[in-house]
């Protein structure tokens, strides 16, 4: 996480328009951790938004899975901002696609970059991360989960066979 934070800072010359948007739910915790780390080193508290992508998923009417809708909370205007979109695990890229569409319906950011804690590969869409915590090689039928403790700190990650 330290390295992610410093990489973001390194590649962002102007912090005044930088904002973090966390994708529910893991991405929210990670966005808060990044916010803390950047505050500690730069003394600036970056604004944080929360994105729920449920309504923008491309499988909502084709899977039998149930999806509970929760709130999107972006308490600032996105226009002209340099957004860092934060997610825990990057896999097919479909969630990222949904997040980009959801965000564009809220405003027109100047730039959007993607920060993920774990990139597990196996993309199905032309999407790539700008900042990666760790590349993890797993089989297509395995799932990767990032675990958080009650305080929202990263406890670790587990790889296991997918249930379905």
């Amino acid at each position: 996480m330290n390295r992610l934070a410093s990489e973001i800072l390194e590649k962002t010359p102007d912090l005044s328009t930088l904002v973090l948007v966390g994708m529910r739910t893991g991405g929210i915790y990670l966005a808060r951790i990044l916010q803390d780390k950047i505050k500690a080193s730069e003394g600036i508290e970056l604004p944080i938004g929360v994105l729920d992508i449920t309504l923008y998923r491309d499988d909502i009417t084709i899977t039998n899975q149930h999806h509970f809708v929760r709130k999107t909370e972006i308490p600032f205007a996105l226009g002209g901002k340099d957004v860092v979109l934060v997610d825990d695990v990057l896999f097919t890229g479909r969630s990222t696609r949904a997040a980009l569409d959801a965000m564009m319906d809220h405003g027109r950011p100047k730039t959007v970059r993607l920060a993920v804690l774990i990139d597990r590969g196996q993309r199905e869409l032309p999407i790539r991360p700008d900042f990666v915590g760790k590349d993890v090689a797993v089989l297509p039928d395995e799932s990767v989960e990032v675990l958080f403790d009650e305080k929202g700190k990263v406890k670790g990650a587990v790889v296991e066979k997918r249930k379905s």
């Binding site: 449920t54 309504l55 998923r57 909502i60 009417t61 899977t63 039998n64 899975q65 149930h66 999806h67 509970f68 809708v69 929760r70 969630s95 799932s143 989960e145």
Partner: peptide, 17 residues
């Protein structure tokens, strides 16, 4: 919400995506 729950296979458990 009603249209979503009836037509979007919504609701249910909080999802793991």
């Amino acid at each position: 919400a009603i249209l979503y729950l009836l037509l979007g296979r919504g609701g249910g458990y909080e999802d793991a995506h």
